[in-house]
Design a protein around this nucleic acid. Structure first.
Length: 259
DNA sequence: ATGCCGGGTACGACCCGA
């Protein structure tokens, strides 16, 4: 079973690259972020033509998440609980039945939080605290649970080409990292860190020649419950996709599991 | 210190991203 995350930076703008990657790799389940469109204009038919079941949680202009799956959905949940006034589409979860049992896959687009002196930063922190409660509840099921997506968090200095340049940014500052560690401390495993102690970047800015200079950061993560971590075989960062024509600024990150 | 680039909205110029 291969389960991937990809921030597509606008699904209508990058549908060609998405379809090409899916045709090449045929992952079983993919969570998408920054689809940037309402459900009515989501390119569902092209994805269904490749055999994917499609569930979306869209929003006009920005945000927006989705799950593509070759396995039928048992359940779908949209939105992060804990604030009825929050209208930003940043979380979608699917539950799937496999031969070996159930697997729960939750895709997130965690708020960026910049600039830190705006209301966006406290929104990020509050969103992380709601996520903490949500994950705590999910872990109580004691089943394979995969929380993956664009976390907008640089876990450690090794996860940035220029960590000093990022320090203080909403992606890499104490208040953000404290909450990220607290989330991990619930009992989640950072899958890529578990299989590799090398620098692995998943995002290169469109600006300032970041890709050419390999000035990347690792902000797209797969976090695993113990029951999922036991089944982890490997993680692949599809770095080559960043060099395609008209790419997203993020690349797909894929976990391989024995279920 | 800010913009760089790029998508979306809407069709000029701004919001948003990381």
């Amino acid at each position: 079973m291969r389960i991937a995350t990809w921030n597509v930076a606008g699904i209508r703008a990058h549908i060609g690259a998405l379809l090409e990657w899916l045709r090449q790799e045929k992952p079983d389940i993919v969570v998408l972020q920054e689809t940037k469109t309402v459900d009515e204009t989501f390119p569902r038919l092209e994805l269904e033509a490749l055999g994917y079941n499609v569930e979306v949680h869209g929003q006009k202009g920005w945000n927006g998440v989705a799950i593509l799956s070759l396995v039928p959905f048992d359940e779908v949940h949209r939105g992060l609980p804990g604030d009825d006034a929050d209208e930003q589409a940043r979380l979608i979860e699917g539950v799937f039945s496999l031969e070996g049992g159930v697997v729960r896959v939750c895709g997130i687009y965690l708020p960026n939080g910049n600039p830190v002196d705006s209301e966006k930063f406290p929104y990020k922190l509050a969103w992380m605290e709601r996520l903490h409660s949500f994950v705590e509840q999910r872990l109580s099921f004691e089943e394979p649970f995969i929380l993956l997506g664009d976390f907008n968090l640089i876990p450690a200095p090794i996860d940035a080409h220029n960590p000093d340049g990022w320090w203080g940014d909403a992606l890499f500052r104490p208040e953000s990292l404290e909450r990220f560690r607290s989330l991990l401390n619930l009992g989640l495993v950072d899958a890529l860190r578990a299989v590799s102690l090398e620098p692995n970047y998943t995002f290169w800015d469109f600006q300032a020649g970041a890709w050419r200079r390999n000035a990347g950061i690792r902000i797209d993560h797969l976090l695993l419950s113990p029951q999922a971590a036991d089944r982890l075989e490997n993680v692949t960062v599809h770095k080559d996709v960043r060099g395609w024509d008209k790419p997203s600024d993020h690349v797909p990150v894929e976990g391989q599991f024995t279920f």
